[in-house]
């Protein structure tokens, strides 16, 4: 009889071709000059490239702002959705989650059209709106999941020990829901750093994000520098995910 582990072979091949190989290619391109020789110039160039650095700063700023806005809007939404007394049917949660079913690009284009029709100036405000609109479900869902599964007796116990409902929330519900928030942050922050379509459509490229620069470089055949920038972004995303990993494992926020 063949070993079960053989069944994973197709997936392994898929992973190698579509994940590992591209990563290696990024790494190889990032440390090559145009002629194919080894160089760290592409990477050091980033640190002297004022344009790239400021875009990078803007990207992180926008990603942070988006994430914070998503928490501020998403947490209360998730909390209300998780309460039986406020949310009597599953329909509401589906309404919140539904945007996830539609391609983000389509939604962004539609949002841009909406702003144009309303005659609004495209800029930072519209960018943040689009970002939050696109990524909010990714924040709500993991938080909702944690809150819904949380035993109600914890809150009862806190109230029983003398906490007002408000303090019971801050001392018990909120800390216990942190794994959900961590998952949400991960799922919002990481993709917002690398997005470029939203800024392109919602600011007419007035605001450039890091993803935009990478795209521009690759589009103008500057493969090596583009690859180097991608590598830097990957490392940064990797660091964020490490940062929230221990918390996530503790409770399993997502799913």
């Amino acid at each position: 009889m063949r070993k079960r582990s053989n069944w994973s072979l197709p997936y392994l091949i898929f992973l190698i071709i579509f994940v590992v190989l591209p990563l290696i290619l990024i790494l190889v391109y990032a440390v090559q000059d145009g002629q194919g020789g080894f160089t760290l110039g592409n990477i050091t160039r980033f640190f002297t490239d004022k344009d790239a650095l400021s875009t990078f700063a803007v990207s992180i700023e926008v990603a942070l702002e988006t994430t914070i806005l998503c928490i501020l809007i998403g947490y209360p939404a998730a909390w209300i959705l998780s309460r039986r007394e406020y949310n009597k049917s599953a329909v509401t949660i589906i309404l919140f989650i539904m945007p996830m079913w539609i391609n983000a690009l389509m939604r962004t284009l539609a949002t841009a059209q909406l702003f144009t029709i309303l005659g609004m100036n495209l800029g930072k405000g519209t960018l943040l709106f689009g970002m939050v609109y696109d990524f909010l479900p990714f924040m709500i869902y993991p938080i909702y999941n944690v809150l819904v599964k949380m035993e109600k007796s914890y809150i009862d116990a806190a109230v029983d020990l003398g906490a007002t409902p408000w303090r019971a929330f801050w001392k018990v519900t909120f800390p216990l829901s942190m794994p959900g928030v961590a998952s949400g942050v991960l799922m919002v922050f990481m993709p917002t750093v690398s997005t470029f379509a939203i800024s392109e459509f919602l600011t007419n490229n007035k605001i450039k994000l890091f993803g935009t620069i990478i795209q521009e470089n690759i589009n103008s055949s500057m493969w090596n520098y583009g690859a180097a920038l991608s590598l830097i972004m990957l490392i940064i995303i990797g660091i964020t995910s490490l940062f929230s990993k221990d918390k996530e494992q503790a409770e399993g926020g997502l799913v």
């Binding site: 009862d156 116990a157 029983d160 020990l161 409902p165 019971a168």
Partner: peptide
């Protein structure tokens, strides 16, 4: 409940 001078030991401890 938070102002009542009594405390509870819950079924699953909580």
């Amino acid at each position: 409940p938070h102002q009542r001078p009594l405390n509870t030991v819950f079924q699953r401890y909580a």
